[in-house]
Design a protein around this nucleic acid. Structure first.
Lengths: 242, 242
DNA sequence: AGAAATATGACATTGATATGACAACTTTTA
DNA sequence: TAAAAGTTGTCATATCAATGTCATATTTCT
């Protein structure tokens, strides 16, 4: 599977050799790698750069992987970031504990670089489809994340960056309702101070763009307004009881 | 983001000017403000009024922000309340310590009122408990919390926000009887002032929506009226002792 | 039957979203 | 580099859905 977007990986391991090995392999696979040999620092770095995924060694002096995981989960800004735990031995108890704590996957050493990379992609496929898919489809609407291109029936649709990001977010989880706040986080980036209502305006622009040059006016309805909650990509219009 | 619900903010700062400035700006933004110029008192007040969020100055004589934070975190009743720390210098060590101690965010002076307000809102929106399960089922009724969608036999049913919230509450604990007050709390939010009887009306609307376009009249009975107590999701029709 | 609780239709009001306009910015283009 | 074209955030206004309450009907219990 190809990667269509820069993906930031944070690897945390106290053993220099292991760290270097991981770094090398992930770089080869086109990931953008940041590393730390120390749990404390790792937490800070994570908060700072908000990586797309974190690879965490289980056994580390001072602040263990478990504790790092816990800290990351207790912090709103890092809570959503997927974590893969690495462990020396395949002790079942460890595995359960790791997943309990909120790790998304758990790999026992030794493992092949290839395996690690597949697992990373598997998780990203679930959490960030746009980073690993060449195209997201919904009906005859296609969105190419890497090319930042949207097509309706093969015809290119021009969207501003914000509109593109919003649509991309919505298409990652069809049907899922996103609050204005979530859309702001996703499409604008974290720590941006913009009115919630601004989202409405961009949704309006997006709808207009999607239905432009089309005789099927229902295209504007691809985006469902969920009163008091936010917006979602509409699922089939059929079978609605009102 | 507009604020449609009274949000209680406790601000703690020993400097009268700063305190007044904060108070003024937050009032402007429709927050309900309580303030204290002293850490000791602040802890007491917090335990007393249980604010929705606390703005805490880092540097204070006697009981510093750090210690106040620690005290609030050690107290079960105040442990969950989000805290924003204000600090004069952007010293990285401070920041880490602040977040370590359990502050939810950390702002360095000087900052614009707009920024502070945005951050408060950001935190409040994050601390709203997120939905746990992907789908709630009851008979052939399905409710998707994340999609804000309800289906009867695979057919979508449109519900207003309040009706959706009520049904969602009921389906989280099938059979459990909820008083009107409890339903108000859950579906409307805490501290809203509406008549208990209003719940009856919404239950009526919900029943109507659930049985609409269905020849099976019994659909309205999914919600059981418990005289003098409230409402509950009806369990199986069998084994009823009358 | 009589009392108490609940159900329901109607309706004014509130609340939330949609939209057009505009000024401030950015990026492209010439 | 300057003009042109495109983006963006905010506001004011328009539109439409959801809500809360009341009056009245109906049900339930004793």
């Amino acid at each position: 599977m190809e990667i269509y977007q820069t993906i930031n990986v944070l690897i945390v391991d106290d053993e220099p050799n292991q760290l270097e090995l991981l770094r090398y392999n992930l770089k080869q696979a086109n990931f953008n790698v940041t590393s730390s040999d120390n749990g404390e620092k790792a937490v800070e770095i994570a908060e700072d750069i908000l990586p797309d995924i974190i690879i965490l060694d289980w056994m580390m002096p001072f602040l263990s992987g478990v504790e790092v995981c816990r800290k990351l989960r207790s912090q709103a800004s890092t809570r959503q970031i997927p974590i893969i735990m690495l462990s020396a031995r395949g002790e079942e108890g460890d595995r359960t504990l790791g997943l309990d704590i909120g790790a998304d996957d758990y790999i026992t050493k030794p493992f092949s670089p290839k395996e690690l990379i597949s697992r990373i992609k598997a998780i990203l496929r679930r959490t960030r489809p746009s980073t690993v898919s060449e195209v997201l489809e919904h009906g005859n609407l296609k969105l190419y994340p890497g090319k930042r291109l949207v097509e309706r029936d093969g015809i290119k649709i021009n969207l501003g960056p914000k509109e593109f990001n919003i649509l991309s977010t919505l298409m990652e989880r069809p049907g899922q309702v996103f609050s204005r706040a979530q859309l702001l986080d996703n499409a604008w980036g974290h720590g941006v101070f913009v009115e919630d209502r601004t989202v409405d305006v961009h949704i309006g622009r997006l709808r207009k763009a999607l239905s432009r040059h089309s005789n099927d006016k229902s295209w504007g309805n691809v985006i469902r307004t969920v009163r008091s909650s936010g917006y979602a990509l509409a699922l089939s219009e059929n079978n609605v009881v009102s």
